[in-house]
């Protein structure tokens, strides 16, 4: 299909190349929650385009649909209508199992409250997904310790999450999200529970992976000072896009 289009040449090819540079393309995403009788329209047809290697922030007031949007883009949830195309692949037809597999290999997540598995130590938390991918013990152990070194936790590989500060836990979480070199890193208010020093550490890490490795990052935040780290902001209001995209 791709080759065929390419052969057409001219405008078609140009369009495709342009499309291709979007690693995520969300088309008219609608997500409605039913709470008994009441319908909450969390997303009312949101279009999103994110380029490969971009560091994008999603902002907006509380309840505006930031988390919901991130969950749709990250394939943690399924929109009622609309399409999400990741890396040229339409994900709307995927089964739950296929989505799980896709997440395992291509996506990484950092949650607000770290969401580490309490029974696994730092390195185990990080290599679990590599193990699931079927990597060898040698491979997953070395990848995991490399990435933990990269987030500055090389001396805490075998520590349990309960023995770590919030900042440290969140850095383990970052390492876990990046260990398998995902296409996209999703982070939902990763600094909400951290003091500003720890927040800065996490954001510096994001910036480092974004700049050095071209890591695409989509981050929900409501702190204005975070904006100096990102390339672009997607503003949400009442489940709709607010068109004041100020690209830096």
């Amino acid at each position: 299909m791709e080759n065929h289009t390419r052969k057409e040449g001219g405008k078609e090819a140009e369009k495709l190349t342009k499309n291709d540079s979007f690693i995520i393309e969300g088309i008219d995403i609608v997500r409605t929650f039913k709470m008994g009788e009441v319908e909450v329209r969390a997303l009312r047809g949101v279009p999103v385009k994110i380029r490969r290697g971009e560091f994008v922030a999603i902002m907006g007031p509380s309840g505006s649909g930031k988390t919901t949007l991130l969950n749709q883009l990250g394939l943690l949830d399924t929109p009622n209508s609309g399409k999400i195309i990741i890396n040229g692949m339409d994900t709307s037809g995927m089964s739950e199992k296929e989505k799980g597999k896709f997440r395992l290999h291509n996506l990484g997540y950092v949650f607000q409250d770290y969401a580490l598995l309490p029974e696994l130590n730092a390195i185990e938390n990080v290599y679990l997904s590599l193990m699931m991918q079927g990597k060898s013990k040698k491979e997953y152990e070395s990848s995991a310790s490399d990435i933990l070194n990269a987030v500055g936790l090389g001396d805490r590989l075998y520590q349990l999450p309960s023995k770590m500060s919030g900042g440290q836990q969140q850095r383990v979480s970052v390492a876990r999200a990046l260990a398998h070199k995902p296409l996209i890193l999703f982070a939902d208010e990763p600094c909400a529970n951290l003091d500003s020093a720890a927040s800065k550490q996490v954001l510096d890490l994001f910036k480092k992976f974004n700049e050095n490795d071209g890591q695409t990052i989509v981050m929900v935040t409501h702190e204005d000072w975070h904006l100096e780290y990102v390339d672009r902001v997607i503003n949400l209001m009442d489940g709709m896009l607010v068109e004041k995209n100020d690209v830096k």
Partner: peptide
């Protein structure tokens, strides 16, 4: 529960 959810999120099969 929560751990199961997190495991599913990162792609551990059911």
């Amino acid at each position: 529960k929560r751990q199961i959810g997190v495991q599913k999120a990162i792609g551990i099969e059911q």
